[in-house]
């Protein structure tokens, strides 16, 4: 079905994974906030490539659309609205770096060790040719899953188990309402206001 995908899968995986990780680290170590945003775009874009590589085309494109095209534009917008000389580069104190390095390093070691500790995870899938196109072309099935129909689990023999696989309709509704609330709430929070007396007092103190 998909001939010799493994070589190219490895090649592109390492390409995208390297870009993702390197630019994520660049986000961490950059001090200029605009450059951080730029690195974050590249990192998230490359991880969209990883998604597509893993067979989740819809998710990869969604990542490009919503994360990179939407969320990050919003972030950059925020950066620009608040961009003043003294906020562009804010240095972190040395002591914080040491603490963060210790905690973060420990967490990383733990996570990587866990990732390689389970045999089922470290063994590659042997019968790649058995992957049918139905399993890789997921856009329609994702939509159906959100509507509450799970075509991928229709072959479940046990009728009791099948009842539990009713899809994500309720979750979808909740998220939709949640998004609406967030839209209104964010617009309300960010509406333009006159400078309050508190802010003026703070300005005076400075």
């Amino acid at each position: 079905m998909i001939p010799s995908i493994t070589d190219w899968h490895s090649f592109f995986f390492y390409l995208f994974a390297t870009v993702t990780c390197v630019f994520a680290l660049a986000v961490l170590f950059a001090t200029n906030i605009v450059r951080m945003a730029f690195y974050l775009i590249i990192s998230l874009g490359a991880s969209a490539g990883l998604f597509i590589l893993a067979g989740a085309e819809f998710l990869g494109v969604m990542q490009l659309m919503i994360y990179v095209g939407g969320t990050l534009v919003l972030l950059v917008f925020g950066v620009m609205l608040t961009a003043q000389e003294r906020f562009i580069s804010m240095k972190t104190r040395g002591g914080e770096w040491v603490m963060a390095a210790i905690v973060g390093g420990a967490l990383l070691v733990l996570l990587v060790q866990t990732a390689f500790s389970i045999d089922d995870w470290t063994a590659p899938r042997a019968d790649l040719s058995a992957v049918s196109a139905i399993e890789t072309q997921t856009a329609t099935r994702l939509g159906l899953g959100l509507l509450g129909i799970r075509p991928d689990q229709a072959e479940e023999a046990d009728p009791v188990l099948r009842q539990g696989m009713s899809g994500y309709l309720l979750l979808f509704e909740i998220v939709s309402v949640h998004l609406l609330v967030v839209l209104i709430g964010a617009a309300y929070l960010a509406r333009s206001k006159r400078v309050t007396s508190l802010a003026r007092a703070a300005e005076m103190r400075r």
Partner: peptide
Amino acid sequence: NVAVFFILAVMGI
């Protein structure tokens, strides 16, 4: 499979 979506997404970038 998701060509329309892809084109819209990258044009947004």
